[in-house]
């Protein structure tokens, strides 16, 4: 067992545990913190996958911006205590069906993984994925999506401002 595999396994366990903790948490703040933990482990995995730039972006965008926003909203609304008793009879079959379907989806993924990716080899070539390389790609072949994304962000900003404006 190589150190990489060991660290991966540890990270994966933390990650899965955090994810399960997130969806089962009764407290939204805890759920958010679990999700941050999950994001952190994923960021470390990006590092392991030769994606340091994305790892940093993952931390600053997801952990630093998105999840802070979540926490803000949770705290502003005082919505952290979740009372989710099932009240609708319609939804009674919902939970088991969701779990069964989820399990089936996972089984499909596992099946594909075992039959297709089992024999895949290691990385084809070593490559840099620092800000320079990403930037060159963004302002090269991905220029249009990049510009579209910037417009999207602008629109989202305006939308958020309009939505939450005091009437």
């Amino acid at each position: 067992m190589t150190p990489e595999l060991l660290s991966f396994i540890i990270l994966a366990i933390i990650s899965i545990a955090a994810a399960i903790g997130m969806i089962t948490s009764r407290n939204a703040v805890y759920a958010a913190l679990f999700l941050i933990l999950n994001f952190g482990t994923v960021a470390v995995m990006y590092l392991m996958l030769n994606a340091p730039f994305l790892a940093i972006i993952q931390v600053s965008v997801y952990a630093g911006a998105i999840m802070v926003l979540f926490l803000f909203v949770i705290m502003l609304l005082g919505a952290e205590r979740l009372n989710e008793r099932e009240t609708r009879p319609v939804m009674r079959w919902h939970r088991p069906l969701a779990i069964v379907l989820g399990a089936f989806l996972l089984a499909l993924a596992l099946y594909v993984l075992l039959t297709r990716l089992g024999q895949s080899t290691a990385s084809v070539n070593v490559f840099g994925a620092g800000p320079l390389e990403i930037g060159l790609q963004l302002f090269g072949p991905y220029l249009l999506p990049f510009e579209v994304a910037s417009v999207l962000l602008l629109v989202a900003m305006i939308g958020a401002v309009v939505l939450t404006r005091e009437k």
């Binding site: 609708r88 319609v90 939804m91 919902h94 069906l97 969701a98 379907l101 989820g102 089936f104 989806l105 499909l108 099946y111 594909v112 039959t115």
Partner: peptide
């Protein structure tokens, strides 16, 4: 109920994915 819509969507996704996986295998 958003969740029941989501469930229907998931059902569709699972069916589509299953179709592709099976047809590929």
């Amino acid at each position: 109920l958003v969740r029941s819509y989501g469930l229907m969507m998931l059902l569709g996704v699972v069916l589509v994915v299953a179709y592709f996986v099976l047809s590929a295998s």
